Amino acid sequence: MRVYMLRSPPLSGTRDPEATMPLVRRALATIASATALVTLAAGPATAAATPPPNSMASLGDSITRGFNACGWYSDCTARSFSTGDYASVNSHYLRIRAVNPTIGGRNYNDARSGAKSADMYGQAGTAVSQNVDYVTMLIGANDACTGSESTMTSVTTFRANIDSALNRLKAGLPTARVAVISIPDVQRLWSVGKDSGSARSAWSLFGICQSMLANPTSTSQADVDRRARVRQRVIDFNTQLAQACAAYGANCDFDDNAVFNYPFALSQVSTWDYFHPNTSGQAVLANISYANGFRW
């Protein structure tokens, strides 16, 4: 940086010396302003960016397992939105690997098809044993999607199960980041599929989410009210997920209901069961959940 010497303008004749002072003050003000701009441009020391993780694990149920995304009633973990390595899905794992190749091969899918919130404590223990830096958790669909409304998990029990799992992660992986993802809107599934004969047949034949999907074409008040109560249970579960994540601390991030609010289409679910995300659905899930999670 150049240093400029400030000199007062020469005095001549009978001019009052005080008359030159405004010129001096303006010059000083100009230098001060320039100095301030240089300081602002430099800014404070930039905080180090959060480094991307070197390993990750996914907790959850059949959605995280990629169930029915590539084969008849089978898991397809390669197409999991979280830890999969199928290019067109562009999972969390692949997005992280693009900026941190050292994560390669350290993507553990600890989810289990059919899992409920009660299973998260055990899955959390597996993630702890793997000593990972990053964990995703998407759970709750099976707590609401049961054989009947009466068998849904209570909100109190759901919260206790989530707290138990998060506490295990925090104790065993105190520096790991945890992404908690909202449960999709199961009433949206009913809304986009109720007019499809194929969807209705699959829901009935396989007994899928009967708490919500039973009598899909019925407009009776009893069925309308039942669907509303099941949806409310999902909303209540998501509220508990948000609160539990906030209680966890800065290392936990909830997606602010981004997945729940996404208006998915019937074309994004498997035509084998009209319930689980297909490859396209997994890709959308990956995009939404990643964009509303941590930034590496």
Rank of each mutant, 00 (worst) to 15 (best):
M1S: 06
R2G: 05
V3P: 09
V3T: 08
Y4K: 12
L6H: 03
S8T: 05
L11E: 07
T14C: 06
R15H: 05
M21L: 04
L23V: 06
R25G: 14
T30E: 09
T30I: 06
I31C: 11
S33L: 15
T35Y: 08
T35D: 10
A36M: 09
A42H: 14
A42G: 05
G43T: 08
P44V: 12
P44Q: 07
A47C: 08
D61G: 02
G66D: 15
A69L: 05
C76Q: 12
C76H: 10
R79T: 07
F81I: 05
T83G: 07
G84A: 13
D85R: 03
S88Y: 03
N90R: 01
H92R: 01
I96K: 00
T102Y: 05
I103T: 08
I103Q: 00
I103K: 01
R106I: 13
S113P: 04
G114E: 03
A115L: 13
S117M: 00
D119V: 14
D119R: 13
M120Q: 14
Q123S: 02
T126K: 14
Q130T: 15
Y134H: 15
M137L: 04
T146R: 13
S150G: 13
M152Q: 07
T157E: 12
A171C: 08
G172L: 13
G172P: 05
T175G: 13
V178L: 03
V178E: 13
V180S: 05
S182R: 02
D185Y: 08
R188T: 14
W190T: 03
V192P: 00
G193Q: 09
K194R: 11
S196R: 00
S201T: 03
W203S: 14
W203A: 07
S204F: 06
L205I: 14
S211M: 03
A214H: 01
P216Q: 01
P216S: 02
T217H: 12
S220H: 07
Q221Y: 08
D225E: 10
R226I: 00
R226Q: 02
R227N: 13
R229T: 12
R233W: 02
V234M: 01
D236V: 11
F237M: 00
Q240A: 12
A244G: 15
Y248E: 13
N251T: 14
F254C: 01
D255P: 06
N257S: 15
N257L: 10
A258D: 12
A258I: 04
V259N: 03
N261E: 02
V269L: 04
W272F: 09
D273Q: 04
Y274P: 03
F275M: 02
H276K: 04
H276C: 01
P277E: 01
T279F: 12
T279D: 06
S280V: 14
G281P: 02
Q282R: 09
V284D: 15
V284A: 05
V284F: 01
S289F: 00
N292P: 02
W296Y: 10
W296I: 04
